[in-house]
Amino acid sequence: MTPPADGRPIFIEIADHIADDVLAGIYPEEAQVPSTTELSLHYRVNPATAGKALTRLVDEGVLYKRRGLGMFVTTGAPEALRARRRAAFADHYLRPVLAEGNRLGLSPADIIDLIRKESS
């Protein structure tokens, strides 16, 4: 999943949902993703908003357009998404954990212990 929504525009949330689905293999490479109209009805948003989500993913290279046919997942998109999210992992997840730990008097070592316990 993506970082929690903090008042981000809905088109970014929709784009993140589609990217999540690409990562999860729901839309494999070269598969077609839902159209603007389908997204509009599914999320109950204005088609312009749904269109912005698709445009964002095209700009990021996750999707590409086949004229007259629709939007498709770019070959290599899952790997590229994974790499990008790994790069952002520290910013999006670790920093908030460390900041909250700091407020609570938990040292990084304490937090590492907690992670070990949770994942065992």
Binding site: S40, L41, R44, P47
Partner: peptide
Amino acid sequence: RTLFYEELLREYA
């Protein structure tokens, strides 16, 4: 209301 939103978008599309 949800029905209204869906029908509005369906008609608009």
